[in-house]
Each structure stands twice: as structure tokens, then as C-alpha cells.
């Protein structure tokens, strides 16, 4: 097993910058954490999931699709260097796996995979959550994993790329510590999962009345933050800008919380109220995706609950649903 000591972190990642385009958890000037570059601020592996979705490395909020010049269509350019993206929690890795499936299914999203293919993914786990809380061990689905044991970072590798990156690091014998983290992770990993399963069952059994969604919808200001922060939200819009000598097509993250998202050409909208749109957002993740993909597509990364200014992120709504409608049935 390899180990990365805190004092070696800057040098380790700086060395990687010659081979990769780096995206790492960093601390910005006002204390906001993000997955950015070394120039953005000091590396900040501690602190848990970053507020923005880490999958933005492969599909930014807005990015080019193609440029049309005098009849020729030029695709958006490839990433110059391979991406190295660190900072995925275990739940983020689940999200990544889900959208990899999504973007590969049927019509393969070549723009996404131009960034994603060949990218090295590094997870973080161990005692590096908020205030040193435990983030469950990931155990795979990425190329390597940095496990915080409270003092330093144990480095676990799961692919050749991961092994290559960790090769130069010193060895350590920390099996006992790792075992302890693994045991603790087994309990921590399930927190919230049961709740979301129960919420999903309520929805699929049609036990949540429309009046509930009206209440939730009344608290939604359509900021779209829930969608824009969600790593498994994949919907996007497309726009064309006509310049003097060329036309640029770009695409941007879209939101099912917007009226225009589902509006038909006739002007009719089958989801014409906040209540219906809020219902759809949660229903899609907890009831529709299990039908199509065989799993709930909310992996409880927590971002929508953090970004929502009125407290109606998916976990909050699921808790309210379970509180109110499981009890009602029992009564």
C-alpha cells in the first residue's frame, strides 16, 4: 500500500500536472471549495463532497458542440491533455458510473466521452468529511483512492493508470487502520439509503398525494440549482450564436424545474406547474429511473440539499414524504 503525506501533497500533484490536465478539490479565495486547477487555490482534499458536481469536468455548464464555417462543420476540440480528476466521494463514483452508462447508451455522447475517455478518476474517503467525519471507503469504480486515516492519505489503486500514478509514493503498512475504516464504512455507507428506498417505494406505490407536491412546489422558486448541482442530472439545451464569419453551437445544462423545459411547440405544457415539475424531479430519480436503469438515480451526494435556498432538496423531501405518508398508512 502506498501513502501520501500531507506535506508532500502539493509536490505530488504538481508533478502530475506535466502529464495531466488536473482537476482537484481546491480552496478558493473566499473559502468555497471546488474541483479546480492548482492555480485556483490551495489543494483542499479535506471537507467532503465539493458543492459543485465533479462530473462538470467532462460536461461543463456550457460548452461547445461545433463551429460551422463556410459550409464546414468543425467539432469541438479534444481535451489537450488527459484529465486527472480527484475529489469523488464514494457516492460521486456511483453518480459517475450512472452517467457513464447514460451517455453511452444508445446514441453515444461523443462530446462527453471526448473528455471522459482516458480520464483518471481519484476518489477520496476516510476521515476527510466535514469536521473530519468519515467518508465511506469506495473500494473501486475509480483508478485510485486517497483514504484519509486522520493523519495521512493511504493510496489504494484499482487500475494500471492508478498504479502508475502511485508508483513513486512510499510504501506503508497500514492494513489495520484500513481495516478499521472499512468496518466503520460498512455502517456509514447505508445512512440515508434506506430512507431513499422507502421514499421510492411510496412513490412507486402512488401513496404521495398531489397536495403534497403543491406544498413542495409552492416553496420552489425555480432557481434550478438542484438540477445544476446534481451529478446524475444529464439534461441539456442547445443554442446557436451567429457571428460575422461563423456559427457556434453550444450546449448548456438545462433544468426540468423550468416551464420551458417541457413546453410543447403548441405552447401546451404537460408539466405546467411547479407542483408537477417538483414531483417530476423526484419521481424521475426515485421511481422512473429504477424502471429504466434498474436503480434509483439519486445516490445521496447531498448537493441539491445544500444548494436549495428553500430546503426542498431530495433528501429533505424524501424525509418529509416518509414522515408523513408511511405514518399515515400505519395509522
Amino acid at each position: 500500500m502506498k501513502v501520501l503525506y500531507p506535506e508532500h501533497i502539493p509536490a505530488f500533484f504538481t508533478a502530475l500536472a506535466s502529464r495531466f490536465e488536473l482537476r482537484l478539490p481546491v480552496m478558493l479565495s473566499d473559502g468555497t471549495r471546488t474541483i479546480g486547477s492548482l492555480e485556483d487555490g490551495p489543494i483542499a482534499l479535506m471537507g467532503g463532497a465539493v458543492p459543485g458536481k465533479p462530473t462538470a469536468a467532462f460536461f461543463p455548464q456550457q460548452g461547445p458542440v461545433f463551429t460551422a464555417v463556410e459550409g464546414a462543420v468543425l467539432p469541438s476540440s479534444d481535451q489537450a491533455n488527459r484529465l486527472f480528476v480527484a475529489g469523488f466521494t464514494g457516492r460521486d463514483i456511483d453518480c459517475l458510473r450512472f452517467i457513464d452508462r447514460f451517455f453511452a447508451d444508445g446514441w453515444r455522447d461523443d462530446i462527453y466521452f471526448r473528455q471522459r475517455a482516458g480520464a483518471v478518476i481519484a476518489g477520496v474517503s476516510g476521515y476527510c468529511g466535514p469536521g473530519g467525519a468519515l467518508l465511506p471507503l469506495i473500494g473501486g469504480g475509480c483508478d485510485l483512492e486517497f483514504v484519509c486515516d486522520g493523519k495521512c492519505w493511504l493510496v489504494l489503486t484499482y487500475s494500471q493508470a492508478g498504479e502508475g500514478i502511485a508508483a513513486e509514493l512510499p510504501d506503508t503498512d497500514a492494513e489495520e487502520v484500513l481495516h478499521q475504516i472499512r468496518i466503520e464504512s460498512l455502517t456509514a455507507a447505508n445512512e440515508g439509503d434506506e430512507l431513499i428506498q422507502r421514499a421510492s417505494q411510496l412513490l412507486r406505490a402512488n401513496r404521495v398525494p398531489d397536495s403534497f407536491w403543491s406544498e413542495i412546489g409552492d416553496r420552489c422558486i425555480s432557481c434550478t440549482g438542484c438540477n445544476l448541482a446534481c451529478p446524475t442530472c444529464t439534461c441539456f439545451g442547445v443554442q446557436d450564436w451567429r457571428y460575422a464569419n461563423n456559427i457556434e453551437r453550444s450546449r448548456m445544462w438545462d433544468s426540468c424545474q423550468l416551464d420551458g423545459f417541457m413546453r410543447e411547440a403548441s405552447g401546451h405544457n404537460p408539466l405546467g406547474s411547479e407542483a408537477l415539475r417538483t414531483r417530476r424531479r423526484i419521481h424521475h430519480k426515485l421511481a422512473a429511473d429504477p424502471e429504466r436503469w434498474g436503480e434509483i438515480s439519486c445516490f445521496l451526494c447531498g448537493r441539491c440539499d445544500v444548494v436549495c435556498p428553500t430546503g426542498i432538496g431530495i433528501l429533505a423531501v424524501a424525509m418529509e414524504m416518509v414522515d408523513r405518508f408511511e405514518q399515515e398508512t400505519i395509522r
Binding site: 478558493l28 473566499d30 473559502g31 468555497t32 471549495r33 471546488t34 458543492p51 459543485g52 462538470a56 461543463p60 455548464q61 456550457q62 460548452g63 440549482g225 445544462w253 445544500v306 444548494v307
Partner: peptide, 13 residues
């Protein structure tokens, strides 16, 4: 990115 804006990220603090 490369002199083009590609999005915003809210300040959390």
C-alpha cells in the same frame, strides 16, 4: 476556460 466563460459556481461562504 481559454478566455470563454463556461459557467458559474455559487460562493458557499
Amino acid at each position: 476556460d481559454g478566455g470563454r466563460l463556461v459557467g458559474v459556481e455559487p460562493s458557499t461562504t
